[in-house]
Design a protein around this nucleic acid. Structure first.
Lengths: 215, 215
DNA sequence: TCAAAATGAGCGAGCGCTCGTTCATGTTTA
DNA sequence: TAAACATGAACGAGCGCTCGCTCATTTTGA
């Protein structure tokens, strides 16, 4: 989708665009594993090159600086997240328990992408300001998808009406609950399976959405 | 409280314990500001020394390595957090709306310590493994305080009974909601005041705790 | 007077990044 | 058809520099 935009965003010495696309993916794939394992700062450009199976010289044919690599990695992760969430939402249409289905699918996406989400929490600050902003915009867009779901259910009467801000905050809460499974996994993972987590948190969210009309 | 323990944990060349305590605080105070501003990796030991008003040589009389400084900073932050939360809980005793009061006080602590919390999220991974574990234990202890509050209210009948795990997860949710105010502040801060946030999230939590018996 | 504390020049490992070079693969020319 | 030339992706030794850390020396204060 905005792949063209992305390719255009990071300049390169190399002429062949297909090759650029291919090599960058190859480099990003290698880099993301290293970033997850050792963090951005402790990973050297040489390690990235070695893991990608190219030379350090070649690496700099495709990127201008180390931060460029981090940005591309973040962008790939967000693309995948958004794709996951979007298709989770198409799977989960229909009335009453649509919300439960969306939550389940979203949490499963978070579960799968656990390491990646964690990395973004930790390394976003290492990006140049302008790209930091982009990463946050991506984050917001994913939240927006959930706002859409909640607003629709609210209007169709499947959920009690609540004002816009309340809906928005609920969306943020759900999104962050998904992230929480990743950044508190050192604890939660010991005591809950992902199925436990989904079940309990879904119940909690539903109470949050439907509860409280009585008084 | 465990200050003795802490001082014992990081060895030093200097004999006078009072001096050690004083200088370490002086260094940590300077370091935390720099870490918040530029991150751990981009902050140099020379910058820390300069900001603390001592020489680079002296700095290494009080710490063995840069990571030691980060650990001490994390420890100070957690102490302050825990103190804040503990006294928030003494302020907020009593029946019905005790929970609302605790949430308010806790969120205000998060609000005040926003930058610090953010830093811990970002830099914990830079710590040596053993100390990483300690930081997570601190995190858990704070959550434990909230579990205590919820369990008490549940038993006194001020909140509907729910099983242990459900209570535990609710505590985690509340804790993370506080953190969310810090790491989504770039968005939330634009659209909500801290008072808005407390009001809406408290309502949400109360619905989550009390709702759902009907049906 | 002398142990304790403070100093900062200096060290060298290791970093991101460059750039002169190589070489496989077209393309042109005779 | 084959020699001459052009292209550009790949390479990696090495440059300039920064950083964490040390230690010989000086200052302090009891």
């Amino acid at each position: 989708m905005q792949r063209v935009n992305r390719t255009a965003t990071i300049p390169t010495q190399v002429k062949n665009p297909d090759l650029v696309e291919r090599r960058r993916r190859q480099i990003a794939d290698a880099a993301v594993r290293l970033f997850i394992e050792r963090g951005f700062h402790k990973t050297t450009t040489r390690q990235i090159a070695r893991a990608a199976g190219i030379s350090i010289g070649s690496l700099y044919e495709y990127f201008n600086c180390k931060e460029d690599i981090l940005y591309l990695v973040c962008d790939f992760i967000h693309s995948e997240m958004e794709q996951g969430v979007t298709q989770a939402m198409t799977k989960a249409t229909g009335g009453r328990d649509a919300l439960a289905k969306v939550i389940r699918e979203y949490f499963m996406v978070c579960h799968r992408m656990s390491d990646f989400i964690l990395m973004i929490y930790q390394e976003t600050q290492s990006l140049p300001g302008q790209w930091q902003k982009r990463v946050l915009e991506n984050e917001l867009r994913i939240t927006g998808l959930l706002v859409g779901v909640l607003a629709r259910l609210s209007q169709s009467g499947d959920l009690p009406h609540r004002d816009e801000r309340s809906i928005e905050l609920t969306a943020h809460n759900i999104v962050v609950m998904g992230h929480m499974w990743t950044f508190r996994r050192w604890f939660l993972g010991k005591h809950y399976s992902i199925e436990d987590y989904i079940k309990l948190q879904t119940a909690a969210v539903l109470r949050m959405c439907t509860g409280g009309q009585g008084k």
